[in-house]
């Protein structure tokens, strides 16, 4: 039980008549990197949103650390330590990078009195350290809205790390990032997993990226689970190849 930190069983979700997810079951191993792939419109982001609580699900159950979360609202799920980043990055664009980092302190672990204190030296150091980790240290005093899209994505990643989550759900972390930077990002994601001990659950379009990182991969197509298993198995699965190269 405890080996799988997220357990999704038989989840269905439809918008009006359109079935976005149908009887999806998957589990995310604690401490590992799990990938979720699938062609456009296969229901990956819908599943993510179901897990983090953006909409109610029609059927099934979602468990986080053996606790049912399919009815909880977004902030409560986030406070359990289940964090997500957005496909279209969301940062506080009017603030500079350091302020963005300091807001991302793990509020769920703080009491009111700690809230009413100023940020400590240790907080500033940690913010600087993580900004350095993603390579944004030089830009730390810039208004974050003036950063490029790729840099904003890195900032959002650093903010997520600042929050010390148990599980981090990443929605297409490499989309929109300069191809030359992708290797660096893969390296950082791996390090976040190994050094900070954060379980990663990643939606990814780029097959090369996800095959490099994940230890388990699930493939969705047309809202249904197509295949799952180790990267090599999924990569060689004829149905997956058809789904990616097929007419749909």
């Amino acid at each position: 039980m405890s080996e799988h930190i997220i357990q999704v069983s038989d989840v269905s979700k439809s918008y009006g008549g359109v079935v976005a997810n149908k009887d999806i079951s998957l589990s995310v191993r604690k401490g590992g990197i799990t990938g979720l792939i699938g062609p456009n419109g296969s229901g990956k982001t819908t599943l993510f949103n179901s897990i983090v609580g953006y909409h109610p699900i029609d059927d099934g159950s979602i468990k986080f650390e053996d606790k049912e979360i399919s009815r909880l609202p977004v902030p409560e799920i986030a406070r359990l330590g289940l964090l997500r980043t957005f496909q279209q990055t969301r940062i506080f664009s009017a603030m500079n990078c350091v302020e963005n980092m300091l807001i991302s302190l793990p509020h769920r672990k703080m009491t009111i009195m700690q809230m009413l204190a100023q940020n400590s030296k240790a907080d500033h150091d940690r913010a600087a350290q993580l900004l350095d980790f993603v390579g944004l240290y030089e830009k730390r005093l810039l208004r974050s809205g003036s950063l490029s899209f790729g840099q904003q994505k890195l900032l959002e990643f650093a903010m997520a790390l600042m929050n010390e989550p148990t599980v981090l759900l990443l929605d297409e972390p490499t989309a929109g990032i300069n191809p030359t930077l992708i290797n660096g990002l893969i390296d950082r994601l791996k390090r976040a997993n190994s050094e900070f001990g954060i379980t990663l659950f990643i939606i990814e379009h780029n097959m090369r990226v996800i095959m490099n990182m994940a230890d388990t991969i699930y493939c969705l197509a047309h809202g249904e689970m197509l295949a799952s298993g180790a990267p090599e198995d999924v990569q060689n699965d004829q149905r997956v190849i058809d789904a990616y190269l097929g007419a749909h």
Partner: peptide, 15 residues
């Protein structure tokens, strides 16, 4: 943070 983007603030686990 709530003013600038409440949805993001919620997703970051802010109370």
């Amino acid at each position: 943070a709530i003013r600038d983007d409440e949805e993001k603030a919620e997703a970051m686990g802010i109370h």
